[in-house]
Every structure is written in structure tokens, then in C-alpha cells.
């Protein structure tokens, strides 16, 4: 596995000198490789994981099951691409099972999401049905537990 990627995956803010020391390669080399992977879109970008509720900001997240009519030659790709381009849409996945696309939408209110579904998503040609699930409480997000920081319970000095 690419060691540089696994280092960045869990902490995008690792400073270059630290990455260089850990990987035993020069900062220049490491910087160049990061740039190359950004250019190749192996690294898609850098986000910050935020517990918005804790920050006192209202956010509503909906998981929307979408059924589609596949199109000749492109299958689901063209519609999926079209849906993905909306700013409200956080993630889009093609799924196996009872529905085709899982669309994750994040907005400031229930109403905003309802409007998005009714006026934009459901009206797209090829979308045959939608079913929405609203997220009530996050426990873990992208590999990280929500809730308070876990303390280091160890003694300060031990043999």
C-alpha cells in the first residue's frame, strides 16, 4: 500500500517535514509525489470532518434511494453525473439491491431538502422514484467517532 497515502488519509494536515522524516525521503520528493497524485486525481481533495450539531449549526442530512431508467450506451452514468453536480449533493453511489442510486444530501433545513427532491431530483428525466431517509444522529463519520475525545489513561511514567 502507498505509505504516503495512508499517512494522509487520516490526517491531511501532516506537515511536509514530518512526512519526510517518517518516510525517510526528502521534502521535495514527498511534495512532488503529493502534487502528482493530486494531478492524477488519486487525491481528490482535502475535507474537514465537522460535527455541525456541536458547532450549533443546523444541518439536515438525507439518504435518498433513487430508482432510474437506464439509458442506452451510458447506463446510469449520465443521470448520476447530472445529479452529482448539484451543490446540495454530498455523495452519490450506484448500488446493488432494491434501488439504483444512493444520494446523500445535506442542507440547512428539512424544507430545503424537500424542495430539492421535489423540484430538482424527482423531476429529472429518467428518475422513476425516490425514497428519503433522514439522519437523526451520527455516531461515526468517515472512520471517526463523534463524541468527546478519548483520554490517555496511562500513568505518566511506567517501566
Amino acid at each position: 500500500m502507498n505509505e504516503l497515502l495512508s499517512l494522509l488519509e487520516h490526517n491531511a494536515r501532516r506537515p511536509l517535514p514530518e512526512l519526510s522524516a517518517v518516510l525517510k525521503r526528502s521534502e521535495y520528493e514527498v511534495g512532488k509525489e503529493i502534487k502528482a497524485m493530486e494531478d492524477e486525481r488519486i487525491i481528490l481533495g482535502y475535507n474537514t470532518l465537522i460535527d455541525w450539531n456541536k458547532a450549533g449549526v443546523d444541518k439536515v442530512t438525507a439518504f435518498i434511494e433513487v430508482n432510474l431508467t437506464p439509458q442506452r450506451d451510458v447506463g446510469f452514468d449520465a443521470i448520476a453525473d447530472r445529479i452529482s453536480r448539484f451543490d446540495e449533493v454530498r455523495s452519490v453511489y450506484l448500488m446493488s439491491g432494491n434501488f439504483d442510486l444512493l444520494v446523500i444530501v445535506e442542507e440547512s433545513s428539512l424544507q430545503a431538502i424537500a424542495d430539492f427532491i421535489a423540484q430538482r431530483l424527482a423531476t429529472i428525466d429518467g428518475v422513476t422514484s425516490t425514497r428519503s431517509h433522514f439522519m437523526l444522529k451520527p455516531y461515526k463519520k468517515d472512520g471517526l467517532m463523534t463524541g468527546p475525545k478519548e483520554r490517555d489513561h496511562r500513568l505518566v511514567v511506567s517501566p
Binding site: D152, R154, L155, V156, V157, S158, P159
Partner: peptide, 26 residues
Amino acid sequence: PSGIRKFFDIAAEMEDVISLGVGEPD
């Protein structure tokens, strides 16, 4: 007595101590 515990009490009182003295996984 184990020499390792000598500074333990002082260190345990400090707020911002960084410990490289721990003989167990973090």
C-alpha cells in the same frame, strides 16, 4: 524501590507534560 517512579508524582501534577516515559502502548 523501582527508580522509574522517582519523578512520577511531579510529572503527574503537571498540566502540559509530554511523556516519553511510558512503557506501554498508547
